[in-house]
Amino acid sequence: MSMPAMTSATAHNGTAPLLVPRTRAWTQAELGAFVLQHHAFAWRMVRRLGVMESSVDDAVQQVFMVVTSKLGGVEIGKERSFLVSTIIRVAANARRAQARVLEQPWNDEPPEIASDAPTPEESLSQAQRRALLDEVLAPLPLEMRTVFVLAELEGMSAPEIASLIETPVGTVTSRLRRARELVERQVRVVRAKHGGPS
């Protein structure tokens, strides 16, 4: 995004189109406000896209280093889309880096659950549940996982997601449907794997 986003408009004489920049300069205070407003969202997205908890803060910093340095070239109104696309890129890079050092890429170590535990619902800590959720989501391709997380964990509608990731609504709906099927199946697999009743 080296050039500012432009849009065409008609000149006053009605003959030649003009290129009107639809970007703007951001003050430091505005950048600060943007970061504060979206920090928690970015953190959750990076985490749910499979970046290990120990690496999330660094990945989020990478996201905002990119975003704050390039917002001036982002078309007005597309700031959040740019943020999400940056989150996806940084998360993908972080997962690749994790994959190089871990035998099981982008999974935190799943918790051991004793098979004689009362039920998984009762015995698991929140951290263990989140690690299991990572395991549930791990098989999803990134584009499918992104749609799933935005819909199911961030509570967005398909049209909102479509607008945010600049993808047709039909594609979003299709990815979401497939993701749900995979997740539903994977929940059963993870539950069985870790000793819970099926």
Partner: peptide, 12 residues
């Protein structure tokens, strides 16, 4: 069980 995994993510 499945619901509880998503609930845990909600408060992350």
């Amino acid at each position: 069980f499945g619901k509880s995994l998503f609930d845990a993510a909600d408060i992350d």
